[in-house]
Design a protein around this nucleic acid. Structure first.
Lengths: 204, 204
DNA sequence: GTCTATATCACGATAGAC
DNA sequence: GTCTATCGTGATATAGAC
């Protein structure tokens, strides 16, 4: 079977290094320095560097899924759930100013490398997209729920990219406020609303 | 001195390859295949790969400067000039869906590599930022001109990143329309306006 | 100016001892 | 399971012929 703890250490270290320095730029030596194992020992746990990337993406997918479920459990109002998404950018603004968005930068890099794991990385985006779409649908925005989800994804991605370029975490704080205001305009709409779905959203 | 034409070929080919496959992933062999010269010949024109990157960024800076001056010469109304910026994303939507924004993806990559040319790449962003800020100032938005410029930069960067992730050029077309609508709300403001600057904007 | 040949090195990956 | 030693490859970069 193998030591699950060591494997987990490798994946965690690789996850951070891929985020901070990119997948291609990260070497086995870099990871070995963090995990404190020899380069040769990687191959007991993984057959190749690509397999480590696979494991990293799988871990991220699982963690993201759990995060989204948490947000859904923590708030009954879809607007509040979406605010959890927006607030995430504020909470992580220091890292984002230094390294960008983990999802966006990995996806962009794999696209340029024409890497086989490209689709798996995009699935991370799809997870957020579907979840946001569901929340907007619950807000009575069935017809344009996907467009709103995509728009919010784009806004947050853009904020991360520009904040990273200018190393400006205050810009993230500023734009998070604007995203919340943007969301409020749709929340208010829902109150006097024109729901596109038959399902009534409870207790709103 | 050296053959200026060959040097220019190298820079042009490197520019495209850096955009499509990233700086680090692009090798001398890749460039040599396009330019049809031997690997060794590079070092007559450049001392290192980093120097090719320098030349590429310098070329991009010059071309961007010329583009911005062109937009300024082509339209008297600052709103129309900003529309030229927005329209650029629509015109290049096919490439953007495949490779992302040339400025954004290069900046992000160099940030992760902690590359010395990072600041030069950011200067590309600054060129757009200052130009947009100037146009918004002319629109009578002196107080928040920089915030509006940054916001528009972020929106366009986000659209490029998401369109690239989902390989969706139609999304770019859709969001370009929304950006124009967003701009119109500020144009209309300027008409009945509350200019923050003493300078009146001519013929509006 | 452009070429071929080669130096040098770092990387991913393998083999086998313990 | 982890190690050391090493292979093979491909990258940047150099040297010198033409």
């Amino acid at each position: 079977m193998g030591n699950a703890a060591t494997r987990e250490h490798i994946v965690d270290a690789a996850d951070q290094l891929f985020y901070r320095h990119g997948y291609e730029h990260t070497t086995f030596s870099d990871i070995a320095d963090v995990v404190q194992i020899s380069r040769g020992n990687f191959y007991y746990h993984f057959r190749s560097k690509d397999e480590i990337l696979d494991a990293v993406i799988k871990t991220r997918l699982k963690q993201t899924q759990e995060l989204l479920e948490q947000w859904e459990a923590d708030a009954e109002q879809p607007a509040d759930r979406i605010r959890s998404f927006i607030h995430m950018w504020f909470a992580n603004r220091a890292d984002i100013a230094l390294y960008g968005c983990p999802v966006g930068t990995l996806t962009t890099e794999l696209a340029k490398l024409d890497h086989t794991s490209q689709r798996d990385a995009t699935a991370l985006f799809t997870l957020y997209r579907s979840w946001l779409r569901r929340q907007f649908t619950l807000l009575g925005r069935g017809a344009d729920a996907d467009a709103l989800a995509m728009h919010l994804l784009a806004m947050s991605q853009g904020v991360a990219a520009v904040a990273n370029a200018f190393r400006d975490e205050d810009f993230i704080a500023h734009e998070v406020t604007k995203m919340c205001e943007w969301l409020s305009s749709y929340t208010d709409d829902a109150e006097r609303g024109t729901p596109d779905t038959d399902e009534s959203h409870n207790r709103s």
